[in-house]
Design a protein around this nucleic acid. Structure first.
Lengths: 335, 335
DNA sequence: CTGAAAGCGCTAACAC
DNA sequence: GTGTTAGCGCTTTCAG
């Protein structure tokens, strides 16, 4: 099962022996070269270069000092949204000498649990999650670990610790309201991969439609979101509601797919059909008509999450634990 | 600097104490519940559940046994291509009880070096890289670590250890040749973020153009690739070569952006301009005309990389160390 | 099936 | 500026 491995790597001891000092001095050099005398510094540098020293985090993890690493759990690696989010995190963490470990859980609570256990097993100093619904055991472990945790993107009513995100329901409501205010009546909601945020957006759609006393058309699929889905959902919507005038899509991929499908079917956007997407990705600006979309501050959410997490790791206690970073409607020509 | 942290987590010793056995038995239980007597098994299970035990990898990393973790270094998180690649890896690794740690290096050798050091500091059993050009120190560290390494996507002439990928130059050559065979003469190459694979594809373009004695039009940018770049590059290409008949794009994002720009400019694809992309992403099938693109087996490259890596970790030695997984041309209507 | 002892590589705390 | 000691939590022997 557990096979032996790897030719033993150079240790601080090895370096110390060669230089003729103790590993303690080498240890000091590694953390702060200035803390040793100039002559030893030079010798250590040479030997460690020659031996190709690689830090071993195990002992650091064992001693109960800070690991200077935070764990980031993303739903998926194929979503642009989370790459900006991660960039935002890293700008902050790198500046403070922290590294991140990335794992992903495919929008699945049980995989999330396994990955949380994995990240915690590395003694991370903090955790950034991108979901708000967790298994019982996940919650247990997080509590036991006793480290700060940020739940990002959504805003749960009672976060585990800190929450940074936006109100997806309100954003969806606002987008759909804009369609209604324009006089549209037959508006459909296109949803895919029915995760929590899709759900929240649907609630926003529902609220706006209910308020205006309009009939709701949920066109949903469990499939993973992609561009070609737009076509499929549009066909279904049209057969269910031939007089369709507007579509609010749970994300831009589907919205773009829908616009493209419209052009194939000879449906004019926005004259015959208005379309609003979610996330305001770059491609919405490349297409004609340009896509109107809910613009979400994911980069800023990443930054803010990291800032708050590091502050908490460093012992700062804030009053507030829920941070709503808002949204805007990116005006295109599809509404 | 290194502040104390976290309320100490439960250890095997804590569990052992509660049950009234030694931590050794608990350790055995954790690795194989069947290896302890049924009654102790039950007791350990209860207590460990109650205490919310979280594994601590530090000691395992310290003892020189296998960590059952492999490190995966991606160029970026925003590229669809690498999400399929990673999925391919995980299907194989999960099946064999391995976990992966993901890091990314933004197509930058120095960041790659830092991330390699980071992954190695966790005593990973193997490494999957997605670049073939590394700093001297990266190579040093990899050698010192003495673990198997796969370089994926490209096929370097002399890999560090194992290489799995495809011949990007040949793929590009084939694509451009297809345009030339169709009678096109004024063909341009659109490249962005000039990383190594972009370079290789350009060489394929060059070879095909040189062979046919045609003038080359390199339209390049250092910017990060995105959809809206298509428009920008197309404008530049048209001003440089007004009689442009074909464009070979280094990736689908740019190709799609170019198709969209064409429709704005009233350029008919493929009648006035042929376009070929690279990677055959889903969106190419959603657009009209459907994009002709080089289809790359990235999922399979991930699978194969993981298989070979794990085999090597387990001591299997293969004859071959370079695996070419080929490519196909996905026929659309843009050529 | 269970236990005892040693040790992995590093750092904190305390000398000198 | 540098050395000494102890110990982090687990697994690997080797015993029983």
């Amino acid at each position: 099962m557990t096979q032996k491995k790897k030719p033993t790597r150079p240790t601080l001891q090895n370096i110390a022996d060669r230089v003729g000092i103790t590993k303690m001095t080498v240890s000091r050099y590694m953390r702060d070269p200035e803390s040793v005398s100039e002559s030893t510094r030079k010798k250590i540098a040479d030997v460690s270069e020659e031996l190709g020293y690689i830090q071993n985090r195990a002992p650091i993890m064992l001693s109960k000092s800070s690991s200077k690493v935070i764990g980031v759990l993303l739903p998926s690696l194929s979503n642009q949204v989370f790459s900006s989010f991660t960039q935002g995190i890293e700008v902050v963490t790198n500046a403070q000498g922290y590294e991140i470990i990335i794992a992903h859980f495919s929008y699945d609570e049980d995989i999330e649990e396994r990955k949380i256990a994995f990240l915690l097993s590395y003694q991370v100093d903090g955790l950034i999650l991108t979901s708000t619904s967790h298994t019982k055991r996940s919650l247990q472990m997080i509590k036991t670990a006793g480290i700060p945790v940020v739940e990002a993107m959504e805003l749960p009513e009672s976060p585990i610790d800190i929450a940074v995100g936006l109100d997806h329901t309100k954003a969806a409501y606002t987008a759909v309201k804009a369609m209604i205010d324009k006089g549209l009546k037959n508006i459909s909601y296109f949803g895919a991969r029915l995760d929590n945020r899709t759900q929240l957006r649907m609630e926003g759609y529902d609220r706006a439609m209910d308020e205006a006393n309009l009939e709701k058309y949920h066109i949903l699929t469990h499939k993973h979101s992609c561009f070609t889905l737009g076509n499929e959902l549009l066909s279904r919507a049209l057969s269910e509601c031939p007089k369709l005038e507007g579509v609010f899509c749970t994300n831009d991929d589907i919205a773009i797919g829908t616009i493209l499908a419209c052009s194939e079917y000879g449906i004019r956007v926005p004259e015959d059909l208005s379309i609003i997407g979610y996330n305001a990705l770059d491609i919405g600006q490349a297409i004609n008509p340009r896509l109107t979309s809910v613009s979400t501050p994911r980069y800023q959410i990443g930054e803010k999450s990291a800032e708050l997490l590091l502050a908490s790791i460093q012992g700062e206690r804030k009053e507030r634990n829920i941070y709503d970073l808002g949204f805007t409607i990116k005006r295109g020509d599809s509404l």
